[in-house]
Amino acid sequence: MSAGGNIPYHLRQNKAIERNLFVDMLTRVGRYCNISDFRYIGFGGPFLEDFKHLHSALRISDMISLEMDTNVYRRQQFNRPISCIELRNESSDEFLSNYEFDSNKNAIVWFDYATTQIGSQLAELQQLVEKLAHGDIFKITVNASPVSLGCSNAGAKILEQRAAVAVNRFGEYGPGDILPDDVSTKKYPSLLLRALINSAKKGLSGDSGVVLYPLSAFSYSDGQQMLTFSGILLHEDEIGVFEDQTRLRSWPFFNECNEDPKSISVPALSAKERVYVESLLPGATADQILHDLDYYVGADQNVAKAEMSNFISFYRLFPWYSRIVL
């Protein structure tokens, strides 16, 4: 919230793809229940872009934005794009302490954390799930850069020291053992995902009536590596009907979180490159595209191939940015 109050999220392509994936997923969940009747609660930031997007795509008209930075809150009052957003000048912790969820109104809650305080964020997720009810949906975004664990001057033992810091910060939510390799840049999002799932399940430990049904998990980087995890609370005996009606298991990006988060990292293409690459899709492979271009876009050829493969998966959700005259 406050730490992210001045970040232009609306210009970050990987995050924009992830936002579009969230809407795509909610559209599919909408085959089972009427998503437009849900209340959306999240961190709006100065421009409230996510709120505008969810209202436009899903017709949600009951929304609450949380912002603890007073200056950003004032910007929100000026920038509020639609009248159905209730603006609150409070932190997520204050909100959870004071707010009573409506038993007759399902909720979608997205806590998009900009800070690196993973210990308090895990505790807050447990508190959130304790307050949610059957049919409610939550999404959590956290910093997944192992640099956030510190120890930048540890030399060859940096992973060992970061693993020790992770054990301390994760506390009761961490897995039984955290190995040095678990806090490498590649594997840290998977470790965080396990901790988030443990936190959500602890939030349900006092309610035998509902279970956690994971929906998606993505990692992406727009300056910092991030992890995002989504789930819904369901009665165990309705999971089969939910899967049949939503057909989420046929969604290419479904992740019941027994596997690593799917990476969202697409190449930084010029407008001309993008138009050319899209003209070859959906039939071309990453190898064919790179062969036709006769050069690669990325840190090296392996990275370029991986990012081009991601572009093939996500190009329909990839935003266009351009200058306009108002």
Rank of each mutant, 00 (worst) to 15 (best):
A284L: 09
G223M: 07
R88F: 05
N143C: 08
D260M: 13
A114G: 11
S313V: 10
G30D: 00
F311S: 06
P267A: 05
S184A: 03
I140H: 07
L125E: 02
F318V: 05
L66Y: 02
L248V: 08
W251M: 03
F51H: 01
L122K: 06
S208D: 12
T228L: 00
K305H: 12
S145N: 12
M68A: 15
S65W: 09
K186P: 10
A154F: 06
P180A: 03
R88Y: 02
Y276R: 02
P261R: 08
V142L: 08
P214L: 02
I324V: 15
C84M: 07
G298S: 07
L234F: 03
L11E: 15
V266S: 11
L125Q: 02
A16V: 04
S216N: 12
S148V: 04
F229V: 14
A133Y: 10
R323T: 15
S230M: 10
I324P: 04
Y173I: 00
A166T: 01
S91N: 02
N89H: 12
I197E: 09
E236I: 08
W320L: 13
L281T: 01
P146M: 00
Y9P: 06
F170L: 08
S148A: 13
N310Q: 14
S184Q: 07
I232H: 07
A16K: 13
S322I: 06
E278R: 04
Q161G: 02
R249S: 13
E49S: 15
D182L: 05
A271I: 14
Y315F: 12
V241P: 00
Y73N: 05
N20F: 05
K272Q: 12
E273I: 01
N104T: 13
S91D: 11
S263F: 09
P81F: 02
L326T: 13
L212E: 04
Y113R: 05
R80D: 08
V165R: 13
G42C: 05
D112Y: 00
S103K: 14
P180C: 03
D177R: 11
S148G: 07
P46K: 11
R88S: 13
R249F: 05
S270A: 12
A217W: 07
Y296I: 01
Q224G: 05
G206M: 02
S322P: 03
S36Y: 01
K202V: 00
G171H: 01
Q126K: 10
I137M: 07
A306T: 11
G223D: 06
V266W: 10
E49L: 15
A156W: 06
I232S: 02
L149K: 03
L26Q: 08
R316I: 11
P252Q: 05
Y99F: 15
K187W: 00
S205M: 10
D62S: 12
H235G: 04
S265P: 04
A144K: 08
N98I: 01
K262L: 14
S309M: 02
R274C: 06
Q76N: 00
K186Y: 15
S219D: 15
Q127Y: 03
E307S: 14
N153L: 05
T285S: 15
R249W: 08
M68D: 15
D136Q: 00
V165F: 00
